[in-house]
Amino acid sequence: MADRVASHGTSGGAAAPDVTKRDFLMLTTAAFTAVGVGAVAWPFIASLAPSRDVLALSSTDVDISPIAVGQAVTVMWRGKPVFVRHRTAEEIVNARTTPLGELKDPATDESRVQRAPWLVVVGICTHLGCVPLGQKPTDPKGDYNGWFCPCHGSHYDNSARIRKGPAPTNLVVPEYTFVTDQSIRIG
């Protein structure tokens, strides 16, 4: 490449001989190129993020009026199963009288439900992602009468908290609200 031109004496300022106009130009060009590359790359990368129609499906309304006491339903939300259980009084008591010291992932039942009879949790085992059994009356419910994951033997209780087995945390409680007494909006 052609020789670097040292700054002329007439250029004013105290430019040291080893910092030249060319250095400034190269640096600003490189900076603008970096910004330009980022600006071009961003729409492509962003296009992979969930699109508007996927985000629109990110809320699911559930009609809970047909769910009898002791019954549970499974609904799809964001592509995942969500367990909605209408708990019996006995199940609620069991959940609330468990000493926190016994829990691998301590959490009170009160902190996991908005209204005591209604437990809403994402039905994906926190170990490696299988769907635990326990929604149907004929399903095995594990040693704590909640849910049992057949893949590696995790047991969940009446508040869907992990009690025994390899799962590290309780079943996730998603964001939900009671739109009316008969309807829950998840997400």
Partner: peptide, 10 residues
Amino acid sequence: MRDVNYGWLI
């Protein structure tokens, strides 16, 4: 064009 992020641009 409508739903994909920057889909209209691409």
